[in-house]
Amino acid sequence: MFAIVESQPLVPNLYRMVVEAPPVAAQVKPGQFVIVQAVEFGERIPLSVADWDAEAGTLTLIFMEVGKTTSALAAKKRGDALPTVVGPLGNPTVIEPFGSVVCVAGCYGIGSILPVARALKAAGNRVTVAIEGRSAYLLYGREALRGHCDTLIEITRDGSRGFKGHIGRLPEILREKGVTADRFIVNGCTFLMRRASQVFEPAGVPVIVSLNPIMIDGTGMCGVCRLTYDGKMKFACVDGPDFDGRLVDWEEFLKRRKQYVDEELIPVHHTGHTRCY
């Protein structure tokens, strides 16, 4: 069992959990993920590692409550434990001195982009971080991010903080600020990553996205995480999760993520457990 050291809501629908997993904390690198179970015989779900403390042997996970497993996780308290935390899985995000890197994050990605930005900065890059949300109260972790980037850009759909609009405005904002990118790195929900891949395509540089398909084992055994990338079949858990978003077959990817939508409503009815915001 993996003991939960901290657990609290961050903003509506998003939670932060610190869990003990010393071997993972000793090995993990930016961009990797773990697979967790909330309960025995529960579903195995992948979550990015948003931070870690190798000495304390702990991992920080930031997750959005969307279904049965994330609800069960959200209900966990300090002192509870998880039956499974396995990793670090996937390939680390490639960190090199690229020059100028623009990191874009929304939703749980605002958490998982932090170690990436930190490592990019340490590798000598000029790092711009753009975070995006519906409204000011949904943008968390700004102070922590500010410490690891040269420029922090905030975009809200209602204009309650930073720039008003959505990710589509970012190229224009970057132009205004005189930022050119040698690489984009995007973490967050699938729609954000797809949109970003389209929006930044004209820049002619890699748009690295951290894909989030359905997974089971996370070690290349089941094939459920497969996608078409540059015309070939890839397994996100072992070939990714990072891919150049310009070469991802997004339409197929989105359809594959919706495979269990009908079934996933059953447990909610079955347990009588629902939450809405």
Partner: peptide, 18 residues
């Protein structure tokens, strides 16, 4: 794997759907 390891045949009492 869905059926055996994840006990899919017990769904919805288990969590992993088929």
């Amino acid at each position: 794997t869905r059926m055996n390891l994840m006990r899919g045949f017990l769904y919805p009492r288990s969590d992993t759907p088929i």
